[in-house]
């Protein structure tokens, strides 16, 4: 395959007599978007939005296929890409699970098996409670948990994953003890909260927006250094920007955000990474992307590979400490 590509390329270059720098790598076969979550999950949504943006605006001639490989909290997809070493057609979508998963279980891939391409958004985390909950703010919520340890049931998506890590960080920072109940997805945790079967969850805005709009759940605070972007009223007279940050509200946890990341198998040509970055830069200008960011209330970013690598490293250091404390590290 490589031989043929090179061969065609040499032919083309000699025929034209020039080698344009930006045309150094170009897809010649369908690109596979490897999604490390099941259909309908957050990672699936961003991948399909980007697919739609590319196809509708014809940003590349290459065909794009989306494949869902969400088994083992996404490990299935990462292993799949890691095994396709040097294959620039396996464009892989994940979150922070790419570099955190290998710590909690022996999964058959290392975080270095993939190289970072970009992170395009940061998803926020909020503390949500039921509409009839007695806790009006984060402070009284934490006080109640302290007064009655393990009486508050915190729901979340999966086990030893972002949600449970955040709950553990809250416990550590405040000294309050909670009971964590893992569900299959954030969507399930949202419905369980709306039905008042659990007391709180730490869902992303997008996972709870339906219930929030209907006034069935109430946000207490957001784990972000500053309040969320201003916008129209979402629920009653409340807009996203009316939600206090958790630090303001008295929980000493400044930031907890989840990056929506993109990766390629290790060993791909430098130019291929560049081609994808250019493609994503074009995606950011599309109407579809802007609507996606607005609809899901995420914070838009555009990390370069080195920025993402640094972000990952910082987060790894912080999170591994939590894993160690909870005894989740895989031997």
């Amino acid at each position: 395959m490589l031989k043929k590509t090179t061969f065609t390329f040499v032919m083309l270059a000699s025929a034209l007599g020039v080698v344009a720098a930006e045309a150094a790598w170009k897809p010649e076969r369908p690109i596979e978007f490897v999604v490390t979550s099941g259909a309908g999950g957050g990672t699936d949504n961003i991948a399909r939005t980007i697919q739609a943006a590319i196809q509708k605006n014809k940003l590349t001639d290459a065909n794009i296929i989306v494949t869902n490989k969400g088994g083992g909290s996404g490990a299935e997809g990462f292993v799949y890409s890691a095994m396709a070493k040097g294959d620039p057609y396996k464009f892989t979508f994940g979150t922070n699970n790419e570099y955190l998963l290998p710590y909690v279980a022996k999964l058959g891939f290392k975080s270095t098996d993939l190289v970072p391409v970009a992170a395009m958004a940061l998803d926020e985390f909020l503390i949500w409670v039921h509409k009839d909950s007695p806790y009006k703010d984060a402070k009284s919520f934490i006080e109640a948990a302290k007064a009655n340890p393990e009486s508050i049931k915190f729901g979340g998506s999966q086990s030893k994953d972002t949600d449970q890590t955040l709950v553990s960080i809250i416990s550590e920072a405040t000294g309050a003890k909670f009971t964590y109940i893992p569900f299959k997805s954030g969507g399930e945790a949202a419905v369980q909260l709306a039905g008042a079967h659990i007391d709180a969850n730490v869902n992303n805005p997008n996972e709870n927006i339906g219930q929030f709009k209907a006034g069935m759940v109430r946000p207490l605070c957001v784990f972000s250094p500053k309040r969320m972007a201003k916008g129209p009223k979402v629920s009653g007279d409340m807009a996203w920007s009316d939600i206090p940050t958790c630090k303001e509200a008295g929980i000493p946890v400044e930031t907890y955000q989840m990056p929506r990341t993109q990766w390629l198998p290790a060993g791909v040509p430098e130019d291929a990474v560049k081609w994808y970055i250019d493609l994503l830069a074009k995606v950011r200008q599309t109407e579809e992307w802007k609507q996606y960011i607005e609809r899901t209330s995420q914070t838009e970013v555009f990390m370069s590979p080195s920025e993402l690598a640094k972000f990952a490293k910082d987060e790894e250091a912080k999170t591994v400490a939590v894993f160690k404390r909870e005894g989740w590290l895989a031997q």
Binding site: M1, K4, R29, P30, E32, N63, I65, T67, Y89
Partner: peptide, 17 residues
């Protein structure tokens, strides 16, 4: 239906991925 099946070396050599 864009469900890629395993092509193998022979088809790759023929330029089908």
């Amino acid at each position: 239906f864009q469900v890629p099946l395993l092509k193998g070396p022979i088809l790759n050599w023929l330029g089908i991925y």
